[in-house]
């Protein structure tokens, strides 16, 4: 369970570039809940995700994961609870290391790094079976450098890595934005499979309204660093792009300013 209490973050305070990125966000995500997060450019979607991940510390407010106060924990300590996939396919994996080495690193997320061997034979077998399950054609390429994979394969691998050790929270930061539509659909498919199979509490930021509507059981819309819409249950199932835009304009009094989100 994720609980956020009135978090605030201002970048470059007291300078000409001052930007209030998060302006009092409250949120409770229940166990197993899959929430999609959308908003216009600069609304604070990725900022909220980074605040949860601990990329930097928030100015005010509290963040709890399963009732543990993580507000002051640095990124690498918080990683114990959190699986993450980035927008940039290059970001989630170590390019010069093998597929199996990347998986083994992820398998030890949040654990102490000892002088035991970095990867065991039984792990190799597990990884092989796991990769086979997702049908990415990677199961026989365990000792291939990740840098040689395509963007889509790298994102799918990052997803598997993020969930190899069951995270209390899965954070997806526009993880299909850099992929072509066909690959994006495949990665979303893998996402849906993984999230549903392990009933992961998931926070998926997306730039694509359709994806936000199709996927997940709850939808958040951000504007000017605040959550302005929170739609769940039956209401979420009935959403269309048009009705969502209408709701946005009612809630914010502005027009939605992200063409890619509407057209994509």
């Amino acid at each position: 369970m994720l609980r956020i209490e009135n978090i605030k973050k201002t970048f470059n305070p007291r300078t000409i570039n001052e930007k209030i990125a998060l302006n009092g966000v409250d949120l409770v995500l229940n166990d197993g809940e899959f929430v999609t997060v959308i908003g216009s450019n600069g609304a604070g979607k990725s900022t909220l995700l980074n605040a949860i991940a601990g990329v930097w510390l928030v100015d005010e407010g509290k963040i709890f994961i399963d009732d543990v106060d993580v507000t002051k924990l640095p990124e690498d300590k918080r990683a114990k609870y959190i699986g993450r996939v980035f927008q940039d396919p290059m970001m989630g994996t170590a390019a010069d290391m093998w597929i199996e080495e990347n998986l083994a690193l992820a398998h030890r997320r949040g654990l102490k790094r000892s002088l035991r061997q970095g990867i065991s034979n039984s792990e190799r077998e597990t990884f092989k079976l796991l990769l086979k399950e997702f049908d990415l054609g990677l199961e026989d390429r365990l000792s291939t450098k990740v840098g040689l994979l395509s963007g889509g394969q790298r994102q799918a691998l990052t997803l598997i890595m993020a969930t190899l050790q069951r995270p209390k929270l899965l954070l997806l930061d526009e993880h299909t934005a850099a992929l072509d539509p066909k690959t994006a659909a495949k990665v979303l498919d893998v996402t849906e499979k993984i999230v549903r199979k392990s009933q992961l509490t998931t926070f998926m930021v997306t730039h694509n309204m359709k994806d936000a509507i199709i996927h997940g059981d709850r939808l958040l819309m951000l504007n000017n660093g605040k959550i302005i819409l929170d739609i769940k249950g039956e209401e979420k199932k009935k959403l269309t792009v048009e009705s969502l835009l209408e709701k946005f304009e009612q809630a914010s009094g502005e027009e939605f300013s992200n063409d890619a989100a509407i057209l994509g």
């Binding site: 114990k80 290391m97 790094r113």
Partner: peptide
């Protein structure tokens, strides 16, 4: 391996704890 990951991709290393 953790040292190699750090040299390779610091953000990924942090995300792996």
């Amino acid at each position: 391996c953790a040292i190699r990951a750090t040299g390779n991709n610091e953000r990924m290393a942090k995300a792996q704890g």
